[in-house]
């Protein structure tokens, strides 16, 4: 099968690889780069466990080919913590009990990050709308909403 040379920046680090045409971005991240924080929960782009940011936009990486990310920037959960400091979202999820089994959490965090980068003070309805493509079977979403609100408040405080 044909291979393509790609250059993809992952969490700020430039990567070069030769990938098969059909290789999914999520498999490249997980199986090749061994960034296993991005999970796979369905085959139909519904569950959002595989959500990463592609040039800042949340995408389901199970429905993106690795070649489609050529020349672009990918952000995964592994890049959230900076210099030993947790991202406010990570802190929010821990403080507000926004996770249980942890499987949907990386996708929720990345969706939350994209939301907060465009909206520093989202309403509950806006948060629910934003995460409506990310399924969680454990928490009932109440504490996920609180976790994102926690992070939003902290980010506003930091930028004030």
């Amino acid at each position: 099968m044909a291979k393509h040379d790609v250059r993809i920046t992952v969490n700020g680090e430039p990567r070069e690889a030769a990938v098969e045409s059909r290789l999914l971005l999520v498999h490249w991240l997980r199986d090749v780069l061994r960034l296993t924080g991005t999970h796979i929960g369905c085959d139909t782009t519904h569950c959002g466990a595989c959500t990463v940011l592609l040039d800042g936009e949340p995408v389901k990486s199970c429905t993106v080919l690795a070649v489609q990310a050529d020349g672009r920037e990918v952000a995964t959960v592994e890049g959230l913590e900076q210099d030993g400091t947790l991202h406010p979202l990570q802190e929010g999820f821990q403080q507000e009990h926004g996770l249980q089994c942890g499987f949907c959490t990386p996708g929720m965090l990345m969706t939350g990050r994209a939301l907060l980068e465009g909206n520093s003070d989202p309403s509950e309805a806006e948060i629910r709308q934003a995460i409506s493509g990310n399924l969680c079977r454990c928490t009932g979403y109440v504490n996920i909403v609180k976790s994102i609100e926690h992070a939003a408040a902290k980010l506003r405080q930091e930028s004030a």
């Binding site: 924080g37 991005t38 821990q94 996770l99 942890g102 499987f103």
Partner: peptide, 15 residues
């Protein structure tokens, strides 16, 4: 258990 999960450092079977 949260510190590993919020960093994507859980260890599930497919990992």
């Amino acid at each position: 258990e949260d510190p590993r999960f919020i960093r994507g450092q859980g260890n599930y079977v497919d990992d």
